[in-house]
């Protein structure tokens, strides 16, 4: 395989590696990293371990956008674009409803859950309006799948990460660390709280939206990766880079499992992340409870 990557190998091997496997792997790495980064930023900003895009409604918003395209009919490029628009639109909506005046984490989460519930209803309605074949395709997309993902899917996400990851990791991370102390304390230490929050919120929503456009709304990675990273590093503060690594590894691992777990039958990767992520979360909550931290 290394030989093939280096340019050798038969044309068939070349095709399988560079056109099928590699783009899928790269897409998995990028989606995992993007979701994990967004999740860590959200959790830090709202100071709540449940502050993930799955729960706040951004993922559902991206799905709504995609489903509208499914119902109206459109190319997969239009679907990806609509997912981005849906995610960003939801971001704006939640910002307008809950965040503009600088609100505390709980209000954002409650508004987010409300918006998520409404959008889930809308998504269900859209599914019933879709032609049967398209509905089946839509359900697969909604589960989150890396099947058949090529360079066309990885490209836009790579561009977004290339711009936003340095902005967040280098430009905003020290200030985000201060935000964990509370808005007032962060402000007293010289953090421009409102502007930082807006930049980070926009970055995280963009990351989630483009990740959803590439692979569908893969569940739980954004929620779980920051927790895993925190347990691995045992460090205070947003562990942005470790989270990205965990997210990328998690999604690649889950995708491998999804392809190999049942011989002759591939699962969408979202099923695996849902099962692993949900299970891990329940275990984590139980463990934290035993340790008296929750």
């Amino acid at each position: 395989m290394l030989r093939t990557l280096a340019g050798g190998g038969s044309p068939a091997e070349q095709f399988i590696v560079t056109e099928l496997r590699l783009p899928r792997l790269v897409t998995a790495l990028l989606v995992g990293a993007a979701l994990a980064l967004a999740g860590t930023v959200f959790q830090s900003l709202v100071r709540n371990p449940l502050g993930s895009p799955d729960i706040l409604g951004f993922t559902q918003g991206a799905s709504t956008g995609a489903l509208v395209v499914v119902v109206l009919g459109g190319s997969s490029l239009a679907l990806a674009g609509a997912a981005v628009v849906g995610g960003l639109g939801t971001g704006l909506l939640i910002y307008a409803l809950a965040w503009r005046r600088g609100v505390h984490g709980y209000r954002l989460i409650l508004v987010g859950i409300g918006v998520a519930a409404i959008l889930t209803g809308v998504n269900g309605y859209l599914l019933t309006r879709a032609p049967l074949m398209d509905a089946a395709r839509a359900v697969l997309w909604l589960t989150g799948s890396l099947d058949g993902r090529g360079w066309a899917n990885a490209g836009p996400l790579l561009a977004v990460i290339a711009v936003l990851a340095p902005l967040v990791l280098v430009g905003c991370a020290p200030a985000l660390r201060m935000m964990e102390l509370g808005d007032d304390t962060a402000g007293a230490l010289g953090v421009p709280v409102r502007r930082l929050r807006l930049v980070l919120l926009a970055s995280a929503v963009l990351l989630v939206s483009f990740a959803a456009a590439a692979a569908g709304p893969v569940s739980f990675v954004a929620l779980v990766a920051p927790h895993v990273a925190k347990r691995l590093t045992r460090a205070a503060g947003p562990n942005l880079l470790p989270s990205m690594a965990v997210g990328a590894a998690l999604l690649v691992g889950a995708d491998l499992l999804a392809q190999r777990a049942f011989a002759g039958h591939q699962l969408p990767v979202g099923v695996v992340t849902g099962v692993i992520g949900g299970g891990y979360l329940v275990w984590l909550l139980a463990a934290e409870r035993r340790a008296g931290r929750l």
Partner: peptide, 17 residues
């Protein structure tokens, strides 16, 4: 923030700091 400091009524200590 280099001239004027503030100790607010409530601050949050991050876990494990």
């Amino acid at each position: 923030a280099r001239t004027l400091g503030l100790l607010p009524q409530s601050s949050i200590a991050p876990d494990g700091i």
